[in-house]
Amino acid sequence: MTSFDVLRVFCGPGGGYGNELGVVRDGSVLPDPDDRQAFAAKLGFSETVFVDDPERGVIDIYTPTLRLPFAGHPCVGTAWLLDVPELVTPAGVVGARLDGEFSWIEARAEWAPPRTLRQYGSAAEVDALPVPAPGEWIYAWAWEDESAGRVRARAFPGRDDGIDEDEATGAAALLLTHELGRALNIIQGKGSQILTAPGPEGWIEVGGRVRQAGFSSPSGGTSWGHPQR
């Protein structure tokens, strides 16, 4: 059995919520991309990361159905787990830092997969949205307090792989920050929190809280932390 950590990334202020992430610390146990894809599908998380070099931070990211050159919550969570200053992804080198309770990455909007950013008139409208039929990837958002940069958001991947709604998506927050050109405090899903801040020369920081949710060992033993609330 392949061992893996389970993290919750972009947790709320009380440590609850967050998007679950699987991290295989020793990617050499599954070197073949097809085997990695099958394992990610078996785990069923919105993303699973395979670490190919823990010291240099070289990682490989998969959804249940495809490989990604970059993704936000996998980078934030893996940077926290490995405690490295950067991650190497196919899209580029992602800066990483820890600041108190928050794990931060620095990336570029053009690395993020395409998303449809759809603004609504109020947070209540976003809350009331039904899950759309599979199709385009939609990031539904509305201002909760525009002057303070507070945003209410929900994410609908539009895939037919059992992930109807993403609890927290750093790549979409990256794109929204790029479009609006300002720092944001985003509450997404049931209560996850994502912080962003634009920097010089097109770089954008994305940060949030990370918690260890579980670990599965090669012997078959599994240890789980507090469940998502």
Results as ranks from 00 to 15, higher is better:
residue 3 S to W: 09
residue 6 V to C: 11
residue 11 C to D: 00
residue 12 G to C: 03
residue 13 P to A: 14
residue 14 G to N: 13
residue 15 G to K: 09
residue 21 L to V: 07
residue 21 L to G: 07
residue 22 G to S: 04
residue 23 V to Q: 08
residue 24 V to N: 04
residue 25 R to K: 08
residue 25 R to A: 15
residue 28 S to W: 04
residue 31 P to Q: 07
residue 33 P to V: 03
residue 36 R to W: 01
residue 40 A to S: 13
residue 41 A to F: 08
residue 44 G to P: 13
residue 44 G to M: 14
residue 44 G to I: 12
residue 46 S to C: 13
residue 46 S to Q: 06
residue 48 T to W: 07
residue 51 V to K: 05
residue 53 D to Q: 08
residue 53 D to I: 08
residue 56 R to Q: 14
residue 61 I to Q: 10
residue 61 I to P: 07
residue 62 Y to N: 10
residue 63 T to V: 03
residue 65 T to Q: 08
residue 68 L to V: 05
residue 68 L to M: 12
residue 69 P to T: 14
residue 70 F to T: 08
residue 72 G to D: 06
residue 73 H to N: 09
residue 74 P to R: 11
residue 78 T to Y: 11
residue 78 T to V: 09
residue 83 D to M: 03
residue 86 E to P: 03
residue 89 T to Y: 06
residue 91 A to H: 07
residue 94 V to D: 11
residue 94 V to A: 10
residue 96 A to F: 00
residue 97 R to Q: 11
residue 97 R to I: 01
residue 100 G to W: 04
residue 101 E to P: 06
residue 101 E to C: 06
residue 104 W to C: 07
residue 108 R to M: 07
residue 109 A to R: 06
residue 112 A to T: 02
residue 114 P to F: 02
residue 114 P to M: 02
residue 115 R to S: 10
residue 119 Q to P: 00
residue 119 Q to M: 08
residue 122 S to L: 03
residue 128 A to P: 00
residue 128 A to H: 01
residue 130 P to K: 00
residue 132 P to M: 00
residue 134 P to T: 01
residue 137 W to F: 14
residue 144 E to Q: 10
residue 145 D to R: 05
residue 147 S to W: 04
residue 148 A to E: 07
residue 156 F to S: 03
residue 157 P to T: 03
residue 157 P to A: 01
residue 160 D to E: 05
residue 164 D to K: 13
residue 168 A to E: 07
residue 168 A to C: 08
residue 170 G to A: 12
residue 171 A to R: 04
residue 173 A to L: 12
residue 173 A to T: 10
residue 175 L to S: 11
residue 180 L to K: 09
residue 180 L to E: 08
residue 181 G to Y: 03
residue 184 L to S: 10
residue 185 N to V: 13
residue 187 I to V: 15
residue 188 Q to P: 11
residue 190 K to G: 15
residue 191 G to D: 09
residue 193 Q to P: 08
residue 197 A to D: 12
residue 200 P to H: 14
residue 203 W to L: 15
residue 205 E to Q: 15
residue 211 R to G: 09
residue 213 A to G: 12
residue 214 G to S: 01
residue 215 F to W: 09
residue 216 S to W: 03
residue 218 P to M: 10
residue 218 P to G: 07
residue 219 S to K: 13
residue 223 S to P: 00
residue 225 G to I: 04
residue 225 G to F: 02
residue 225 G to S: 05
residue 226 H to L: 15
residue 229 R to M: 12
